[in-house]
């Protein structure tokens, strides 16, 4: 069974504004594919097109070879979470899942099962209007899992979750992927995907900036840099800057990274400058840094506030 998501040359423009400028990618089964990019990069638009909620200007998006609208029982093929707020506040949680189950011909016994999976078993009969954002997010996940689908499309699923919830979500995503599902998870915070996504798609200004495995991306971002831990970061900075102009960066109050010098060369420079240090080792970049390197220049509204709900782990 081939349960891919396939996106080919997708374009979407709203009048003169181009939201997606010809993107192509493929989400393979058995992996969590992270879909990252700044706010407004086009992540949600792409997901809406995959789910048939928006028509592309050109190009195609298919799930298991069909466009979403052709799928006879869509919730059995694709589970999705776009907007956790999209629930009727006066409806009970179990009723919300019940109509979804009926719409796709699922047994009503699935409802309590998925509510247990997401930890909402105890509030099944409560009105959704009384739920916190985190609980609504869990309800959204429950709806996505309702049809036990081989494909999952989740837009910012950790929004509004507390640290415990985020930890739970990461575990859930890993488990779902290990069962062989194709999972596309978007986030505007790369750090959230660290240790979960084995494949990363970086979107900026409607274009794919990177499409690679997480390992590769990190290797590329760390490329030959050396990390220096020292209590005298300013002194180290100036000493190294003299040896490798323009390739030295502060990385924290007690650390500095250098590119273009080997560890031995760094040690020698600092010894000569009499800068005490704790450690010199090969630098391991974080996803966040890899992402920052890629998206510099592709942020539409730099300086504008992030959606505040996202909590970092």
């Amino acid at each position: 069974m081939e349960h891919h998501i396939d996106v080919r040359d997708l374009r979407k423009s709203y009048g003169a504004a181009v939201a997606l400028d010809g993107i192509s990618f493929r989400v393979a089964p058995g992996h969590v594919t992270g879909f990252v990019g700044p706010n407004g990069a086009g992540k949600t638009t792409t997901m809406r097109i995959i789910l048939g909620l928006a028509a592309p200007t050109s190009g195609t998006a298919t799930v298991a070879g069909c466009t979403y609208r052709e799928v006879p029982s869509p919730l059995r093929l694709v589970g999705s979470l776009l907007d956790a707020g999209a629930v009727h506040p006066a409806r009970r949680a179990d009723h919300h899942l019940l109509w979804l189950a009926q719409a796709t011909g699922l047994s009503r016994a699935r409802v309590p099962q998925v509510l247990e999976v997401v930890g909402l078993g105890g509030v099944a009969k409560k009105r959704v209007g009384t739920f916190s954002l985190g609980m609504r997010q869990r309800l959204g996940i429950a709806a996505a899992l309702l049809g036990d689908p081989p494909i999952l499309v989740l837009d910012e699923p950790t929004n509004g979750l507390d640290p415990e919830g985020i930890w739970w979500m990461r575990g859930l995503l890993r488990d779902l992927a290990s069962e062989g599902r194709a999972i596309l998870v978007s986030s505007h915070l790369m750090a959230e995907l660290e240790g979960v996504a084995s494949h990363i798609l970086v979107l900026g200004r409607g274009r794919i900036l990177a499409d690679s495995t997480t390992e590769e991306l990190l290797r590329h971002a760390s490329a030959g840099r050396v990390l220096v831990l020292t209590d005298h970061a300013p002194a180290a900075l100036s000493a190294l800057a003299a040896a490798a102009p323009g390739r030295v960066e502060p990385a924290g109050p007690d650390r500095v990274t250098v590119a273009g010098l080997t560890s031995a060369q760094v040690l020698r420079v600092l010894e000569e400058a009499h800068v005490p240090l704790h450690e010199v080792r090969a630098y391991q970049a974080t996803l966040e840094e890899a992402y920052r390197d890629l998206t510099v220049g592709s942020v539409d509204h730099a300086g504008a506030g992030h959606r505040g709900e996202g909590a970092r782990p």
């Binding site: 809406r48 789910l51 048939g52 909620l53 979403y68 609208r69 799928v71 869509p74 919730l75 999705s80 776009l82 907007d83 707020g85 999209a86 629930v87 009727h88 506040p89 109509w99 979804l100 719409a103 796709t104 709806a143």
Partner: peptide, 16 residues
């Protein structure tokens, strides 16, 4: 009511 609570999307995902 579906537009008021952005439920249209949910409905269309279930019944495209």
């Amino acid at each position: 009511d579906e537009y008021a609570h952005s439920l249209v999307g949910t409905t269309l995902v279930a019944v495209p």
